[in-house]
Design a protein around this nucleic acid. Structure first.
Lengths: 142, 142
DNA sequence: GTTGAATAATACGAACTACGTATTAAACTG
DNA sequence: CAGTTTAATACGTAGTTCGTATTATTCAAC
């Protein structure tokens, strides 16, 4: 396969520059906004209930202590609870609280609205094509 | 125009989730990595040589003092110089140094490589279609 | 079974960032 | 020329990341 042309690359650069500015998500809840990593943690814990800080740290490639601080913040905020499972009493099992679940739900809803806005300018047929291309790009194993 | 279907939105969400993880840029230079805002400032100053901190703050929607600190960091690092124009001696005119120019050039180069990687999985014809769609989405005035 | 190594997590401190308030200096305004 | 506005910085506070040290628990070997 030939390489992308310089024109294609330059146009993509320009489009993505605007794109990244335009499609930026506000924080879902009230009060002080969460740090980026905190939001990632909430989504990860929702998908992996009962996981531990070590899993989270490995998954995001940050230091364990960072996750410890972050889960501490989230627990204080009432979004996360740390349970000591009887099976291994060193470990903690992370779970979303009701508030945490609401928060992540609201954030996911906001994402969906944003994705709808992305697709809005395209025709129904173009939307399928676009989504297929994004999927192709994302799942490509180079 | 009808709304995007739930399927389309869900597929896009899944694709962009992977997309955002995969296409993440490492820091261009050596030494301690720059803060995000610092990199944005370098690109802005390159595009608007002689601009002042106030312009930059307005452009990015952050506090003036944040830009003051940031330009201070960048100046200490040798990426930026602050000149006092004779015309208005309150103002400072920001300019990239040679090192600053090199840094931004390296970062832009890294972006281009990333954009090439994005387009690589698509056929030449698809690339045009994809770039056109991204442009359409970015420039849409809803 | 007890001792020693490995593992899970936290406590604490150092380095850094963002930003609000106060301050300095220069340029307008009447 | 006094008062206000404007541009920027100094300084302090709050918050984040992460490295090192510490605590508690489990595993391994003898």
């Amino acid at each position: 396969m030939t390489d992308p042309t310089d024109d294609q690359v330059a146009s993509l650069a320009a489009a993505l520059d605007v794109f990244s500015r335009r499609f930026k998500l506000k924080d879902a809840g009230a009060g002080r906004p969460l740090a980026e990593i905190d939001k990632h943690i909430l989504h990860y814990v929702e998908a992996h209930p009962g996981c531990g800080p070590t899993d989270v740290a490995r998954n995001f490639g940050v230091a364990m202590t960072t996750i410890s601080s972050a889960t501490d913040r989230l627990a204080k905020r009432g979004f996360l609870e740390r349970l000591r499972p009887s099976e291994d009493r060193r470990a903690v099992a992370l779970r979303l609280t009701g508030d945490g679940t609401s928060y992540t739900a609201a954030q996911k809803q906001a994402y969906l609205i944003m994705f709808r806005a992305m697709l809005a300018p395209l025709s129904p047929a173009e939307r399928d094509t676009f989504v297929a291309m994004m999927t192709k790009i994302s799942s490509y194993e180079g």
